[in-house]
Design a protein around this nucleic acid. Sequence first.
RNA 1: GGAGAGGUGGCAGAGCGGUUGAAUGCACUGGUCUUGAAAACCAGCAAGGGUUAAUAGCCCUUCGUGGGUUCAAAUCCCACCCUCUCCGCCA
Length: 434
Amino acid sequence: MDWKTGQTRIMIDPKLLRQSAAEVAINLAKRGYVFDSAAYQALDERRKTLQVETQQLQSERNSSSKAIGQAKAKGEDIAPLLAAVDDLGERLAKNESALGELQQEIADIEYDLPNLLEDSVPEGRSEDDNVEIRKWGERTDFAFAVRDHIEIGESLGMLKFEAASKISGARFTVMNGALARLQRALIQFMLDTHTSEHGYEETYVPYLVHRHALVGTGQLPKFEEDLFKTDDETPFYLIPTAEVPVTNLARDTLFEADQLPQKFVAHTPCFRSEAGSYGQDTRGMIRQHQFEKVELVHFVAAGQSSAALEELTGHAELILQRLELAYRVVALCAGDVGFGSAKTYDIEVWLPGQEKYREISSCSTYNDYQARRMKARSRNPETGKPELIHTLNGSGVAAGRALIAVMENYQNEDGSIRVPKVLQTYMGGLEVIK
RNA sequence: GGAGAGGUGGCAGAGCGGUUGAAUGCACUGGUCUUGAAAACCAGCAAGGGUUAAUAGCCCUUCGUGGGUUCAAAUCCCACCCUCUCCGCCA
């Protein structure tokens, strides 16, 4: 917290933290996060004392200065007044810097706090404890030996990992011809569906962002190692998801009540360093440094976010339904919910090549966590006072993984791929890729 | 890349060392007037923090961000970020 402005950059309501530190600790413990509420409160007590003292000195300085100004205006001798404030500045500076240090100490703790979980988040420590909410569609049944997307793509000559590694090393892909077009078709289909049927506004955003944008959405300061950045003096970061630029559209904004909700959809590439995921999904297109994604973002008034999360998740699901891909929706358990999220649904699509459901979308409500960091507010029509908005986002859906799902689920015995009905118009009427 | 101008309340826009947290206009809220509405007129109207039972008072902080000068900074100095104009280069 910045003591001068009182502005906090943490994600949990600072008042709640001070008044109900123990309750906060209980909530965070569900994630497996240990928050020493007693130590925090002790620090905060010291802060209060010091702050009152400092403000008292500031008040003295202000009234003295005012008196000097008035005396000067009347042409009186100000020398005795100046003498009276002689050491005030020094005492004040001392107090201010002590308070600043203490505030920094508190801020370091606050920065490290993940968001509060909603009550409906299931308990659990790892992804094994996630709870399946619903399933849709039949897993594809094959009368022949199933191939994974790598085999299918390489034998078609349209998916080239070696070519990519010559240029950029591991975790990149080169695609050609109908397969490259199929990914574009998926993206177009998703954008069209969300804009024309779900009321989203299509948005084009920068792929390079400044640091503060990432602090706003919560990737920073904690997850620096997951991101690519330039080595400029003021570096640009490559976006790990469109969530970052799109959500930051609400930064420093005070919405009028009738301007909400707002829904945006954007297609962007996403760049992730995938540090710490060595050995995971090293083959194929599942986990890349660069992938395409269509992202959905909602800005809603406080109190509307639970309904919005269900709505947003449904929008992502419809894409898979139209593509006739089997999937399931799981509620992430407390230990698996992301740092800034209050509640998350993952949508997992059936991949025959892996004989597994794999994540293709992650839909989260952040409640006021991101809004607090971004200073995104709306005017409460009843009180006339600004209050933090709620932000949500979800993939609708990840295009690279959707491409894998189509390749594997729509494969034929001869190695060709049928084009899903809803994509054929985007493929110039093509029905089979061979 | 070079040269200049600028960043002030929800918005527009004054102020350029001292009763300025900030003129004015728009928007918004309440009132007068009106059958109702509009117009006109009157009044109110920034945010965050501390203290507190309090959304009452009182106090602190905030004029892009961070430093500095000063008894005193929106106003002066430095750095950075951002915006605009012109020149160069370029898809």
